[in-house]
């Protein structure tokens, strides 16, 4: 799709593009290229000399049990967050889409958690589940559950999943609601006249028609769980206890900043880049399809 009428200035378009392109080159492409370059180098202990080692760094991270454990943690974490953020959002949006009193008020009261920073969501839930300070934490201890997320791997993971999913429900809710509102009411009314129950109408009409939205949200939520939850993990558990909540992003941060290992940290960045490229391509292929649909 091109415009027929255009301006013919020679220099102006480049000037207009300059700020965006300059930032993109300096802060996106140059660092990304460096990550690729350093991922093939090994530096000596003083960082003075480096040597080209082909894929040795990739071999090193992929045989490192800590890295493999991060992959496991990331998969469990992302799938849990995605499911826990999508299912309640779908339920709530179906309910809010009905012609009930106060639907607008409900909507307002359900969308604001989107504005809460992931790290702040973490602090809010910490205050509730802290074993000696939090309301529910103390309750769990009182009824005899050995609750301490600072010591127990599974409990720590559960808490970061809860805090991360809680914040994301609003986002999914809004997209499901927009999807539901585009379903023609006449179709639903026709099904109702044919005697289809509410549950049946949902599973045979609403849910299939929502599937483009659901698929889109699956991708977006996976990306969210991967990249935007750094703050939640950093605020709640710092990746611990042990490495039980160290996701791939958290590991890049720890290896690059605290352990100062440029080679393996860059190799991890490159692996993540490949992953984002794959996800983005899936997303755009799907959007292309939706345009024709």
């Amino acid at each position: 799709m091109r415009k027929r009428v255009i301006f013919n200035d020679k220099a102006l378009p480049y000037l207009l593009l300059l700020p965006q392109v300059a930032i993109t080159l300096i802060f996106f492409f140059w660092p990304a290229a460096q990550a690729v370059y350093f991922s093939t180098q090994i530096q000596d202990a003083f960082g003075l000399r480096s040597q080209f080692v082909w894929f040795e760094n990739f071999g090193a991270i992929l045989s490192d049990p800590n890295y493999l454990s991060s992959i496991r943690v990331t998969v469990v974490f992302s799938v849990s967050v995605t499911v826990l953020a999508i299912a309640p959002a779908l339920l709530l949006s179906v309910m809010a889409d009905k012609q009930i009193r106060g639907a607008t008020t409900y909507k307002t009261l359900l969308i604001w958690p989107y504005a809460v920073a992931p790290a702040i969501a973490a602090v809010l839930w910490l205050f509730i589940f802290h074993p000696s300070v939090g309301l529910l934490g103390r309750f769990l201890v009182a009824i005899g559950v050995p609750w301490d997320y600072a010591l127990n791997d599974a409990q720590a993971l559960l808490l970061v999943v809860l805090a991360s999913a809680w914040k994301q429900i609003s986002y999914n809710f809004l997209f499901f609601l927009a999807g539901l509102q585009s379903i023609p009411r006449s179709v639903l009314e026709a099904a109702a006249i044919d005697g289809a129950s509410q549950t049946r109408r949902f599973w045979t009409i609403v849910f299939p028609l929502l599937s483009p939205t659901t698929f889109f949200l699956l991708v977006v939520n996976l990306v969210y769980a991967f990249f935007d939850t750094f703050g939640t993990i950093h605020a709640l558990t710092r990746g611990g206890p042990g490495t039980s909540t160290t996701t791939l992003i958290y590991r890049v941060y720890v290896d690059g900043r605290d352990n100062l290992n440029l080679g393996t940290s860059s190799a991890q960045s490159v692996v993540l880049m490949l992953f984002v490229i794959a996800l983005t391509m899936i997303q755009f292929r799907y959007i292309e399809r939706r345009v024709h649909y």
């Binding site: 660092p31 992003i249 890049v252 690059g256 860059s266 960045s269 993540l272 984002v276 490229i277 983005t280």
Partner: peptide, 12 residues
């Protein structure tokens, strides 16, 4: 495709 999270250290 290049969110800040995946190129943290070189960008820094």
């Amino acid at each position: 495709m290049l969110p800040v999270e995946v190129r943290i250290i070189p960008t820094y």
